[in-house]
Design a protein around this nucleic acid. Structure first.
Lengths: 111, 111
DNA sequence: TACAATTATGCCATACAAAGAAAGAGAAAT
DNA sequence: ATTTCTCTTTCTTTGTATGGCATAATTGTA
């Protein structure tokens, strides 16, 4: 594995970076960590949390569900479990349609 | 208007029937009535509530959103008002596919 | 008597916020 | 180089406002 890729994989976010990113109090992040099993930040020797990019993605989804959609934490948990695949499926469909669109545009140019 | 249809339109549900139907306390129904503008039961001379079939339908939706989907009351309200949910998303996808269909039909005619 | 209304108050879980301790990092003093 | 002092960050624990109804008291009427 090349050097840069290893660096990316080792990318961690501190608690300060996360609270800055979402504009919330650290206590809320810790509370969410207790509530949502998908959030599993590593910890260093001191005990400080090291958030992975996956943690960040999950936090984005959680904040979207809770703040914008109006789910309870419990509702957001179940939505995460049952709908993560659905969201990814829709993403794939959209990407597929984009490719078809590009193909058709190219075809249209050739006629 | 024929007799039977008038009867159907005049169909009302009492508070007792509603609490029985949803298995909840009357105070919860009255509380939801205060919270959700869509719930507007008539009242007879005595003051007793007369729930319309439309009220019942809305209550079904509300209970579904709150109890099963895990929305907060606020979230359920907004979900009811703005159809910004899956329905509208799917609508956009369908419209997009319709346009693609028209494009393909046109293309097929030209070749 | 039995069901329903209103108004006021009570209550418990949810969803965080605040407080205080502990642990580096860096600068200053020894 | 090492100790001491502050400064900052994060930790854990404890506190609390709000949400979401339930209960109580009183009144009405069929």
């Amino acid at each position: 594995m090349p050097y840069k890729e290893r660096e990316i994989n080792k990318m961690y976010y501190t608690m300060g970076e996360v609270t800055e990113m979402f504009g919330v109090n650290a206590s809320q992040i810790r509370f969410y960590e207790k509530e949502f099993d998908v959030l599993k930040p590593k910890k260093n020797k001191k005990g400080n949390r090291l958030f992975t990019p996956e943690d960040i993605e999950n936090l984005k989804i959680i904040f979207h569900l809770v703040d914008e959609k109006g789910f309870t934490l419990k509702g957001a948990k179940e939505h995460l479990k049952s709908n993560k695949d659905e969201v990814k499926e829709n993403q794939k469909i959209i990407e597929s349609l984009e490719r078809i669109k590009d193909f058709l545009l190219k075809l249209n140019g050739e006629i």
